[in-house]
Design a protein around this nucleic acid. Sequence first.
DNA 1: TCAATTGGCATACGATGCGTATGTAAGTAG
DNA 2: CTACTTACATACGCATCGTATGCCAATTGA
Lengths: 205, 205
Amino acid sequence: MHRPRKEMIAETRAKLITAARQAFGTIGYAEASMDDFTASAGLTRGALYHHFGDKKGLLQAVIAEIDGEMAARVNEVAARAPTRWQSFVDECTTYIEMALEPEIQRIMFRDGPAVLGDPALWPNANACVGSMTDHLTALQQDGVVVTGVDPETAARLINGASSQAAQRIANSNDPEATSKTVVAAFRQLLEGLLKKADGPADQRR
Amino acid sequence: MHRPRKEMIAETRAKLITAARQAFGTIGYAEASMDDFTASAGLTRGALYHHFGDKKGLLQAVIAEIDGEMAARVNEVAARAPTRWQSFVDECTTYIEMALEPEIQRIMFRDGPAVLGDPALWPNANACVGSMTDHLTALQQDGVVVTGVDPETAARLINGASSQAAQRIANSNDPEATSKTVVAAFRQLLEGLLKKADGPADQRR
DNA sequence: TCAATTGGCATACGATGCGTATGTAAGTAG
DNA sequence: CTACTTACATACGCATCGTATGCCAATTGA
């Protein structure tokens, strides 16, 4: 049998990723000692270097995992909206909600870009942007969104705004109230993508 | 006389800031060895710790300096626009242009937030956002921009979008062309802030 | 079943970089 | 002129990283 063997290996990989994710998400990448969090997983740095090459490699793996989860959540939300535009807006707000979680904010929006560079160049991450891009493309074909804007570009810009939105809410001393004003401003910006009213654009809401 | 004395001190501070700015802007904060770049300024870490407390303190000083320069540039551009809205748009595009510079992008948008946290909480930085906020407030009073959006919030969101815009341009293999599409999409988003010229009926649900 | 070998992971080592404690020389005040 | 402060350098200990090496279990082939 070589099943048990493979399973053990996958398990150690998973344990390392989980431990690193915990450490990166709380104290941050730079402050996370490899000795410490590998030990918390019952392992040593030896395992880490064997599987991931270095600390950055482990961060990439953590990011890939989180990105997968984010994409799943976004798709789930988008799937149960009545219209495409609504689906798109829900997608964006879900994105903001996720960016509110400290772990995601820290790893995906702060330490990640600082250590690995522009997220747009990450090989296995930001499936969310892909989803948003698809929605925008479809909305253009539906005549809801203005043509002339590149969907992926728009998705990236919205992405950046979302990140700021989340930070503003997260650092507020009254998150409830702040959330309302921030989401309102955010939606107002999105309106800029809509074709000017008075066509068959009633669908959009 | 204590003039020469004070001047020498200010000079060492300036030399440290300049050397650090160079190092942070090129190889990045984490990779910049304090021994190395203090030596490149003809000093040692002793001077650094004396004046700035620690590496983070020096980064703060560097950021404050850059922020001052950015604010100056933005104000200069904004001052010579015919209308307020145009002034605002110019301000934003100038912001994008500045974010294109590797040094600014690296220090202000990547390493800075990663090391010091949310820029909105920086004590002595982001004068640009303040300027944009003022413009938005005035534009609301002019009846150009929709009321109901918080100006500072909007400024922050735009800020985030600008940062993404700059990264997209900077990492493109055809920056000229990319710049056009990115700025186009960016302006389209800004349109969302404008009051609709004609009738009612365009309020959100 | 029993070598032989591979691969997963731990241990040991050297190097680098940070922060602090201490030293020193120049300037300042009484 | 003496005592004190200030600006900066030097010296030390500690943590952390990457690599080189070692060991043991699991797999493979006969």
